[in-house]
Design a protein around this nucleic acid. Structure first.
Lengths: 95, 95
DNA sequence: GCGCTATGTCAGCGATCGATGACATTCGGC
DNA sequence: GCCGAATGTCATCGATCGCTGACATAGCGC
């Protein structure tokens, strides 16, 4: 599943937790956080600590993969060759 | 690439940023954070906000996927040290 | 009805985040 | 040598995190 927002992280975590038949308290203890944290994160807390989130994912055997291969037909995100073009575009965009 | 730690997130981000020929300031402005934040995150800041990290990934067109398909050989991919234990210990020590 | 479990809510608190702004260092070109 | 760009460091400061602990609600079995 593609994850792009904190809310999605929450959904993924809650889902997996339930699938594993764990209640929030048990889950929290496993990760090493408070039950309160679990509740908030499952509700999509955007300011959760990256490290804790990763621990949670790990505790539930959720694999996280980062990739850039998603160049459907847009163009330009791929630094295959035209570095200069990319630089130029980035600069213009910025300004 | 598989991401399991804040440091790896930092590496991924810095990598992509450089590939896109963006300097930290420009990158920071794009995401909407301070340059300081970029520096810390690229250095593996564990307590970075989940939301900001996601924004950064998005700004660099990095796709993030969560999956449980194949349980990653518990034991092989596992780091030699027990991170959870360390963190737990640190927390207790503090209090 | 009563107890038990699971989830969610509230308030308070210390620790830390992320922002700002100045400064140091390194590298390249002139 | 000097300048500009890029990165990293330092100190300060308001806002917020995550923790604790208690309470409220809902479902279930007896």
């Amino acid at each position: 599943m593609l994850v792009r927002t904190p809310a999605e992280f929450g959904a993924v975590l809650r889902d997996r937790r339930k699938k594993l038949k764990l209640d929030q308290s048990t889950f929290a203890k496993r990760i090493g956080v408070s039950r309160q944290w679990v509740i908030e994160v499952e509700h999509g807390h955007a300011r959760a600590e990256l490290g804790l989130i990763l621990r949670a994912l790990d505790a539930l055997d959720i694999r996280l993969e980062a990739g850039t291969e998603q160049t459907p037909a847009r163009g330009a995100t791929r630094p295959a060759v035209d570095i200069n073009a990319i630089v130029a575009k980035a600069r213009k965009k910025k300004a």
